[in-house]
Simulated assay, not measured.
Amino acid sequence: MNAILYVGHGTRSKTGAAEASSFVQRVMERINIPIQELAFLELTEPSIAEGFARCVEKGATQISVVPLFLLAAGHIKEDIPQALASLKNTYPTIKVQVKDPFGIQSVLLDGLAELIRESAGDISRSDSILIVGRGSSDPDLHPAFSKIAEGIRERLGTTSVSVCYLAAALPRFDEELRLIAEQTSGRVIVVPYLLFSGLLLAEVNQKVHQMQKQGIEILHTGQLSKHHAIEDIIIKRATQ
């Protein structure tokens, strides 16, 4: 019997964990597969091992692992495969298929551009868009975000699209945000490239609110899971 195990990153934020659970529940309701479980890589329960075991207990003989990750960085390349390796030894008769992360695809970039328009209205050429990634030491990080920025430029017809990171990569969010705020003649539109709420999004919120109090015309779109395109991508990944 087929099963789906959704794997999220995990967070210390109760709000973020509840948001991820609610989001996945909506996805589950749109998929006609009886065994579906949510697990997290770290910080939030249940663990991958617990989620996997629940699938097996319900009668799963084949498990599709669907990572709730935007890009293929260290967690996708190393951490999740390591967690699954021991489970494959524990359950040698269970077939395991790991789906790809979201990656860079047109439907996601279309959804991101639509989310920006919904949050900011019409985008003028004087507006500056700042895409904020989680950050990673993975060498594929910068090329991936360059493609994301280019995709947004094409869809919104603007040239001022920059990228920064909250950790582990440069340029850092604080520095890039301050620089853009000083240079732009229009609005600053911050786009957190994060799926769910959590401590990282709270950091973005705090910086944006500080600048708003200083009279700077700045806003942010919120997390990506607000847009229906994200649900659609997961459903397609899970059912292919």
Score class of each variant (00 low, 15 high):
D127W: 15
P101L: 12
L109Q: 00
A73H: 08
L112V: 13
V132N: 10
S128W: 14
L108K: 02
I123C: 07
T93W: 14
P81C: 03
G111S: 05
D79W: 02
G121L: 00
D140R: 11
A120V: 00
L70D: 02
I129F: 07
S106I: 13
K99C: 04
P101F: 09
S136M: 13
R125H: 15
G135M: 06
F102L: 12
Y91W: 10
Y91K: 00
R125I: 06
L84D: 06
V107S: 10
I94Y: 11
V96R: 03
V107H: 08
D122T: 09
A113P: 11
L115S: 08
L112C: 05
S128P: 13
L87I: 00
F102K: 04
L109K: 00
G133C: 07
A144N: 07
A73T: 13
L71F: 15
T93E: 15
A73W: 14
P81F: 04
L112Y: 07
G135C: 14
A83M: 15
V107T: 11
A83I: 03
I80N: 05
I104R: 01
L70H: 02
L108M: 03
Q105F: 00
L70Q: 01
I94N: 07
Y91Q: 01
L108C: 07
K88H: 12
Q97A: 05
L87C: 03
S128H: 10
D140F: 11
F69W: 08
G111H: 04
K77W: 04
I129H: 05
L141V: 08
K77E: 04
P139D: 09
N89K: 14
S124Y: 03
D110E: 12
V107N: 08
A144R: 06
T93A: 10
L87T: 04
K99M: 11
E114H: 09
S126Q: 12
S137F: 12
A120P: 00
L130Y: 12
D138T: 09
I80Y: 02
D122I: 05
Q82N: 01
P139Q: 05
K99T: 01
L68S: 01
R125M: 14
I123P: 11
V132E: 13
S86G: 06
A113Y: 11
H75K: 01
S86E: 10
V98I: 14
A144C: 00
F69R: 01
P101S: 10
I123L: 07
V96L: 09
H75D: 09
I116C: 03
N89H: 14
I80D: 05
A113N: 06
D127R: 06
V98E: 15
N89L: 12
P92V: 03
Q82M: 03
D127L: 09
D138P: 13
P92I: 06
L87K: 04
G74N: 07
L71Q: 12
D100A: 13
R125C: 08
P101R: 03
F69M: 10
I104E: 12
S137H: 15
E114R: 04
T93C: 09
Q97K: 10
L109G: 00
D140V: 07
R134P: 14
V98P: 08
